[in-house]
Design a protein around this nucleic acid. Structure first.
Lengths: 199, 199
DNA sequence: CTGCAATGTGAACGTCCATTCGCTAATGGC
DNA sequence: GCCATTAGCGAATGGACGTTCACATTGCAG
């Protein structure tokens, strides 16, 4: 009585996606091969038809996260050419992304840098870097356009931008969604925007 | 051949402290009763003379973290009465606190909200809240003194302050300490301070 | 239509880990 | 200095989990 068969490429992505959701919902310790298989509608051993190990699934999940982050920055850049507006929209996009976004810090913080697997920390670092670089590029663009203050370091600004999102996400998580992220971000954005825009 | 005996109050604190360091270094998944006992110089079962369960150890660790955070805000308030200076010093204190600070987000993000233990999320929320409240109080004080802009919401500012520290901590962690936290914070503080101080 | 490679199944294995228990050794109040 | 209490030890237990393997089923290529 085997379930529907899927080609390994589709399955792989489906499994990686399920991994992200699972980690986001139950944390890394709730992320077992059994629960993963269950969520995809498979039996645990079937996972090993597509991945050599549980660790490999996590790596694939990280890949997927990176793709999503890139897609987000691309999208806002396509929507508008105004730097301030790009950043504001990117910020708002994060509100909707929180559920899967929670998986990022969870994977980052929970993984142990035990011998041999410390590569994942490097991978994570690269993901964050590439995201920050994209944000910094938006900032640089805004500086050229005269929209943003020219005396600010784009790298600093990009990290500060990340600092708008992150604590909001944490508060949202620990209060079980009771913290009004959108409200806070609107308020914080005003202060932040005021600080970085050209007068 | 039993090791030195310690009174349970001392042991409890010692164990809680060891738990923080262990989580900070190896992550939540590296935090086992065995490794914990090892670090304290005991045998696993001995832990249960002082705590009813592993979860109880984590709760004690959270308690300890809260105490440390409170101590930090107290210290900067004692050092100076200038709101801006208080915040700046609090920020710099975090640089040195990172090692144990890493335990906070790790515990927050990695724990699963499975039935019955979701109280810990509430505890974590309370810790963060109390910290934010203290920061907000510093801000309010600064507004009364005319040091900080009066039109800003102290709650928003306190969360943004947290947003200065957090991403820096993440970057520091994923780059294995290669990211220059102090440098970034000096730069970011300038922008932030500019945004919140009264003109 | 046939057969082989790709997927999926279920049982089994070994490991790790939290926790329990009976015993021993130290400590502190008397 | 004596004894009860407290703290620590080591072995044992039971469950969860990652992974493997032999076998079943599916679906595509020819």
């Amino acid at each position: 009585m085997s379930r529907e068969k899927l080609r390994t490429e589709l399955r792989k992505e489906q499994i990686a996606q399920a991994a992200i959701e699972l980690v986001a919902q139950r944390g890394l310790s709730g992320f077992s091969v059994a629960s993963l298989a269950d969520r995809v509608g498979l039996v645990p051993s079937a996972i090993y038809r597509h991945f050599r190990s549980k660790d490999e699934v996590l790596d694939a999940a990280l890949d997927l996260i990176q793709q999503k982050l890139v897609a987000n920055t691309r999208a806002v850049c396509d929507e508008t050419s105004d730097a301030s507006e790009r950043l504001r929209r990117l910020l708002m996009r994060h509100v909707q992304m929180f559920r899967e976004n929670q998986a990022v810090p969870r994977i980052i913080f929970a993984e142990e840098p035990y011998a041999g697997r410390s590569e994942r920390k490097a991978i994570t670092a690269r993901i964050i870097r590439s995201y920050l670089d994209r944000v910094a590029e938006i900032v640089r663009q805004g500086q050229r356009d005269g929209d943003l203050r020219k005396d600010l370091n784009p790298a600093t600004v990009s990290i500060m931008f990340l600092g708008l999102v992150q604590p909001a996400g944490v508060l949202w998580f620990v209060t079980d969604g009771r913290f009004d992220v959108a409200r806070h971000l609107r308020s914080a954005w005003e202060v932040f925007h005021d600080a970085i825009r050209a007068d």
